[in-house]
Design a binder for these strands. Structure first.
Lengths: 140, 140
DNA sequence: TATTGTTATACTCTATAACTATA
DNA sequence: TATAGTTATAGAGTATAACAATA
């Protein structure tokens, strides 16, 4: 099968690579019950205590209605909690519970270890370079 | 907002980059009425006349039931046609119609031009390198 | 017995409209 | 008048089970 032309296209290659990495991510994160988006949300809250839902939506390109059930689920599982925003009565600051901090920390270790495995054919320098080039693409 | 950790992850970066490129792809391909997957199918048929549905599914990681309606739609639009497979009575070879060839050729030109634009911040050498590294990831 | 193409269907993901409370 | 969070819902994408025809 001749796929040579498709393999010259950035969109095709980036999508195939993303799906390949995410497939492994799903397996390794299954013990934590976290999908990629759950891990992203949890990690943003961990590194930005008090962040609002709107800020997470803007950062991850998620539509607000689609974040509601995710936050609700993470809260129900006792991983995050909502506190009144200090200055804006409409907003709610998100924070990790002690359990949430523990889960996020373990999941982050798993995610970091995963990097080495999914990029098996790449040297560490190539992986750094690849991430750098990808960021330049989506920051456009 | 601190996104520094997420931006070290290949899965995160590849997904963001893919979505960024595909958003532009969708706009530019709208005049042809082609989604990314339609373009991929059309291009595989163009470069591999007589290819079967199963081969396309294996190549693009599409499940057979989900390809049926796509092929049906492309056939209804007069872009592809199905002929009896020369040796396997179960299979059907896919071919482009003259109209399909014309559409695919124009869409391919559009896709190639798009490469330059979505990778605006990258030099041509960097783009080649990026594609090379991505292929190494998903061929793992 | 296995494979190709297909139908039906369920599940997940993403998108839109409209509402409330507050700014 | 605009924004944060929410509800309900629609649409697109992805998945599994089961079937007829052929290998």
């Amino acid at each position: 099968m001749d796929t040579s032309y498709l393999e010259t296209l950035l969109g095709y290659n980036a999508r195939r690579a993303a799906l390949s990495v995410i497939a492994v991510f799903l397996q390794r994160m299954a013990p934590f019950g976290l999908r990629p988006v759950d891990f992203s949300v949890l990690t943003l809250v961990a590194h930005n205590p008090g962040v609002t839902s709107r800020q997470i939506c803007a950062t991850l390109d998620i539509l607000p209605p689609n974040l509601v059930s995710m936050v609700k689920s993470l809260e129900k599982r006792g991983l995050i909690l909502r506190r009144a925003h200090p200055t804006d009565g409409r907003a709610q600051g998100l924070h990790l519970t002690p359990s949430g901090k523990k889960t996020q920390a373990q999941a982050q270790i798993t995610a970091t270890q995963l990097e080495q495995d999914v990029s098996g054919a790449l040297s560490n320098e190539e992986l750094q370079l690849l991430n750098h080039l990808l960021r330049k693409v989506y920051r456009r």
